Computed example of a mutant assay.
Amino acid sequence: MKAVILAAGEGTRLQPLTQSRPKGMLPVGDKPLLEHIVESIKAAGVDEIVLVVGHKRERIQNYFENGDDWGVDIQYVVQPNPRGTGDALLEAEHEVGNSCIVINGDRIIGAELLSRIIDKHQSTGDACLAITEVEDPTQYGAVTLDGEEITDIQEKPEPHEVTSSLVNAGVYVFGPDIFAAIRQTDHYGELRLTDTLREYIQSQPLHAVRYDGMWLEISRPWDLLSVNSAMLARNGSTIASSAVVSEDATLGEPTVVGDHTRIQPGARVFHDVVIGDNVTIGANTVLTNTIILEDTVVKPGTVVADCVIGSGSQIGPLNSIEGGLTDVRVDDELYTEIKFGGLIGDNVTMKGNVTVEPGALIGNGVRVESGSALDGRIPNDTHVYRG
């Protein structure tokens, strides 16, 4: 059986970071999101993978190549335009042949789930869908059950429509008949896999496989922080051998420090911090619950909390990104009481004494003059002056 990873989407809710990289290459701990998925697939005994790629696909293909480094064989299929998960799977039809396990490329799951859902399909010969329990089903595909068979899937139901807390976990096993079902699906705009399944279950069984293990999804900017925290709690700290950490710096637990990164005297790196390769953390900086991508410099005396900083940026000195609870609007949807200091894009330059208010979304290439205060959404390549 082959595994199909659906990783072609643009990840618009994670912009500006996903304007220059696919969502699957965002860091989770010491490796990209997609690498965690590939490792789970291998651990479940599947060694043939079809990666459906699209947006910025060269970043994925250059990283994984043919899969040899992970002990798997990876084939690539291109979805030229983001036309939905059903269309993405249909693109892989010629590479799959028989039954396949299908995984959404924006979530980390345990190998145990993959083994169980494969076993369920092999014992029944029917399609299977993993389900899990969440606090807010309105953000997912809510499922209705009759025993252990799924009788309905409703994407992002209204609160009054929710009948249970069980949702589609984004892991499926299908026989080859799924491709004909996708082609026959009535749809407007994007062709979602769940649209196909709502029609499919009118005549075919779809077995639920319940799962309460590791299930970590990245859809919004602050999900990067919570998912990284969860993975660090499981795996602990990783400090690259080539990193240079001053004896006068403080490293809390858990943290990740990448290759050739330099942490200067007096810096305090507290819990849940992921620092990428070739990053410089200046003297007397303070970092908490923060992700910093490669080739960035955080200059002396800067305080950063609950924040994601893109690659190639220059932050500080004496900047303040103190984090905390805030309301954030993403794709016209307002999220309230989110612990999120902000997202700073790639190649941003901030001079000294800049304040970033909680929840700010700062685009790629933004330049910020000394003493400025940033709030809300700052478009790409904006030049911000104090005033």
Rank of each mutant, 00 (worst) to 15 (best):
V4M: 07
P176A: 12
N228I: 08
I118S: 14
D126G: 11
W222T: 00
Y172T: 04
E35G: 12
V171Q: 12
R210G: 10
A169W: 03
D272Q: 07
D73F: 13
R13F: 04
D327E: 12
T326C: 14
E294T: 04
F64P: 01
I291A: 10
M350F: 06
N168R: 12
D331S: 15
K299F: 08
V134E: 10
P82M: 04
V77G: 12
A43D: 07
L26T: 05
E135A: 08
P22L: 06
W222R: 05
G376C: 04
L90G: 05
I182L: 12
R192T: 08
G312V: 06
I275Y: 08
G324Q: 08
N319A: 11
Y172V: 00
Q122R: 15
I201F: 15
D223K: 13
T255M: 08
A240T: 01
I109R: 14
R210F: 01
V143M: 13
N289L: 04
V330P: 10
V348F: 11
Q15S: 09
G301C: 02
G341R: 02
N380D: 15
S219Y: 07
G316R: 05
I239H: 14
E65H: 14
F64V: 00
L17R: 00
H36V: 02
I37H: 15
Q184M: 03
C307E: 02
H36F: 02
V354R: 04
I103N: 15
E190N: 15
G266C: 01
I103T: 11
A142Y: 08
V269A: 06
L197N: 08
I41D: 12
L325G: 05
V303M: 11
E337K: 11
L251I: 01
I378T: 02
P16F: 05
E148I: 03
R192G: 05
Q202A: 13
T382A: 15
T355Y: 03
R234Y: 00
A142V: 04
E95D: 02
V173G: 09
Q264I: 01
A243G: 11
I118H: 14
D259H: 15
N380K: 12
V72T: 07
V96E: 01
K56T: 05
V328C: 14
N364Q: 09
Q202N: 13
Y140Q: 06
K42F: 05
L89E: 00
